[in-house]
Write a protein that binds this DNA or RNA. Structure first.
Lengths: 157, 157
DNA sequence: TTGATTAGTTCTGTTTTGGAACTTATACTT
DNA sequence: AAGTATAAGTTCCAAAACAGAACTAATCAA
């Protein structure tokens, strides 16, 4: 199966990945969450080839994740900013960051920390149940077909 | 910059992506969270080529994310199971799922739902501050260099 | 003896990538 | 006026990764 067919499967993970599930795309998003906006800066910070960078930025704009806005005329120059839709990808980056902090950091520890502006707590956000607010792991959650997709093959557990 | 150099940068996101930041790898993980364990099943469910699948499973085992365990002798057959380290990638998959449910679902709605076993609430977990427990978005969190990486270039905001 | 299962490996042609050089528009310096 | 700098790309080519299909190996069942 080619990658461009992946977005047509009935899976929200696959569909999301069809848009951002690319090595460099996710790093471009990391950068943009760190407030990088310009082509040259993305290129310098990431070390990605200009060719690939141009392609990824274009796709992110096409998907409404970034806006390409003029920041100067004469000569005309553009910068890239997160849309609300793009901003909602923050949990993906945060989850990658949190795992990397835990399993991939070297002796010096993680290079970045986050502060919750409201309460001042330092730490990467974690997954919580929207109802009871307690932290959840894979074991705490049971996945099942949504009602519309549920045939009568509902196994009990 | 080649991809295998990405894991040596000082960024937990990049380091995580150097391990799982590959189109198919993340889909393999989705499958394993849905309890798929065997080569043939991964291949059937994902439509990935056997070649790529074999490679990705091998790498996930090398990184300690999956265990390759014998489930039968004569002939010897193996299956793949999440380790604890692998299980901790759940937030990444959940974040991708949540975004896809919101932005990529078709009219029928998301195909999968999740239930919090403990409180019975249906919904995909969300990001929360580990301290005050309230839901956080990108705007609520401020990123800054960790103490060990902080020179005296600490901008106020 | 033939076919089925499972977990791979091998082969070949196509696509994507990395790296470097080039382009375009304009301002700034000398 | 000529030359240099900056920013945002585009173009080119060789190298790496991928898709699709066929093949292998070990064993059991009919």
């Amino acid at each position: 199966m080619r990658w461009d067919e992946i977005g047509r499967t009935h899976c929200s993970v696959a569909r999301t990945l069809s848009v951002v599930g690319d090595r460099w795309t996710l790093l471009v998003l990391r950068e943009v969450f760190l407030r990088t906006r310009r082509f040259e800066d993305f290129q310098k910070h990431l070390g990605v080839t200009r060719h690939v960078l141009a392609d990824r930025l274009k796709k992110l704009v096409e998907h409404g994740i970034l806006d390409r806005v003029v920041y100067q005329d004469r000569p005309r120059r553009f910068e890239y900013r997160l849309t609300d839709k793009g901003s909602d990808l923050f949990p993906v980056i945060a989850a990658l960051l949190r795992w990397g902090d835990r399993y991939m950091a070297d002796e010096a520890g993680p290079p970045l920390e986050m502060v919750h502006r409201e309460c001042g707590h330092v730490g990467i956000p974690e997954l919580a149940c929207p109802e009871c607010r307690c932290a959840v792991t894979a074991r705490d959650m049971k996945a099942r077909p949504a009602p519309a997709f549920r045939q009568h093959r509902e196994e009990s557990e």
